[in-house]
Computed example of a mutant assay.
Amino acid sequence: MHHTDELDDTERTTDELFEAMASGNVIQVIFGDAFAFHISLSGVALFTRHDLAPEEITELVAGTARGVLDVDPTPSCDSPIAVDPGEAALLDRALAARRALVGA
């Protein structure tokens, strides 16, 4: 089981994330109350932090296969999901670090 490096510091560079992942750590990036991404050498896992209907899950999987995080607000949300720009940039850098590590 990998150690989880919970990052509050959205300023970590791609190189720092590369080193953390190469050491076997899991990079966790949280998008508000909606999603948590766990990025490691073994894969990228997306966890929902609220219940999704089966059709919403199907749409989410289809979108991520195209490289798009396409989710309509669920009944429990009154507005579109807010994503912190720092967290979005951190996710971008973590995914770039993983691509560099796995050679994709």
Rank of each mutant, 00 (worst) to 15 (best):
R12I: 08
L7C: 07
A20G: 00
A94K: 01
D8T: 11
G86P: 01
G86E: 05
D92H: 14
A34K: 10
D84Y: 02
E87C: 11
D9Y: 00
L52I: 02
L95D: 06
E55T: 13
D92E: 13
L17K: 00
G24I: 02
E59A: 15
R98I: 01
L46T: 00
A22N: 09
D5F: 15
D70G: 03
G103K: 02
V68P: 05
A34T: 14
P73E: 11
D72W: 13
A62K: 12
I27W: 07
P75A: 10
V61T: 11
F47T: 12
T64V: 15
L91A: 07
A88I: 08
A36N: 01
I81K: 06
D51S: 13
R99Q: 12
D9H: 04
V29T: 03
A45R: 14
P73G: 07
A89S: 12
L41I: 09
V26N: 03
L69D: 01
L60F: 07
V71H: 13
F18D: 01
A53L: 14
D51N: 13
F18S: 04
F47G: 02
S40V: 00
P73C: 07
E19D: 15
P80D: 10
A100V: 06
R66C: 04
F35M: 01
L90R: 07
M21K: 07
R12W: 08
T48K: 08
R66P: 04
A20N: 00
D70V: 02
A65G: 13
F18M: 03
T13Q: 06
I57A: 11
S40M: 02
T14Q: 12
A88W: 01
G67T: 01
A97S: 04
T64W: 03
T14W: 03
R93K: 12
E6V: 08
P85R: 05
D51K: 10
D72S: 14
T58H: 12
D15R: 14
L69S: 09
H50P: 06
Q28R: 14
L69E: 08
F37V: 02
L69Q: 07
L41Q: 12
V61L: 12
P54C: 11
I81H: 14
P75H: 11
E87Y: 08
G43V: 09
A100W: 02
F18G: 04
F37P: 06
L90V: 00
D33V: 10
T13I: 06
E59Q: 15
C77D: 15
F37D: 05
A34E: 13
S23P: 06
A88H: 09
I57Q: 14
